[in-house]
């Protein structure tokens, strides 16, 4: 099968070129868990729609994040896709996560690059997604009751100092 595809590709058969997405345009919506109090792991979810100028739909796509390959799910089988992963709260760093999206040709190139230890940046992705994560809320810095106790003790201390000054 692959030999046939390779042969057809060599022969410059137009139908194969129809499978390649030209001038990709992407619309992204992403979601990350913000509250680290209730969840055990942070979920990173990015949903995107991919539109090609040559109207190619239903492409098989793969994502790459920090040298790891992530599968991309098809949502409606046409233009909508989802990429998602989870990370432990301690390991998840805040900031931007850059995800490179590849088609099947790019996927085989990136796999070769990862296997041979080459720089993954040498493979040009089809599109690049940015998922920003502002960090998870892990509770207040200082407990309110602790702060209230500190304030009360300081008020008592001020009063005590003044009282002792008066008495002396």
């Amino acid at each position: 099968m692959w030999y046939l595809i390779f042969l057809l590709n060599c022969l410059n058969i137009p139908f194969l070129h129809a499978l390649l997405c030209k001038d990709p345009e992407v619309v992204t919506s992403s979601y990350t868990t913000q509250d680290g109090m209730v969840v055990a792991e942070i979920a990173f979810i990015s949903e995107f729609s991919l539109h090609c100028s040559n109207k190619v739909t239903g492409l098989t796509l793969y994502g790459e994040l920090d040298g790891h390959i992530l599968p991309i799910m098809k949502v409606d089988g046409k233009t909508k896709y989802q990429i998602s992963w989870t990370e432990e709260i301690k390991k998840a760093h805040s900031g931007d996560y850059i995800i490179n999206i590849f088609d099947e040709e790019g996927y085989s190139n990136i796999r070769k690059a990862i296997r041979s230890g080459e720089d993954t940046k040498s493979v040009t992705p089809l599109i690049t997604l940015t998922l920003s994560y502002s960090g998870a809320y892990l509770g207040p810095w200082v407990n309110s009751e602790f702060l209230a106790a500190i304030l009360l003790i300081s008020a008592w201390y001020v009063a005590f100092v003044h009282k002792s000054k008066l008495l002396s």
Partner: peptide
């Protein structure tokens, strides 16, 4: 559903490999 889709499709899962999907 806050994030992700509860119904998705993946074309191929090769033997001996795993794939994950997350929904919130």
């Amino acid at each position: 559903t806050a994030g992700g889709q509860l119904s998705v499709k993946i074309d191929r899962i090769p033997p001996g490999s795993n794939v994950s999907h997350t929904v919130v």
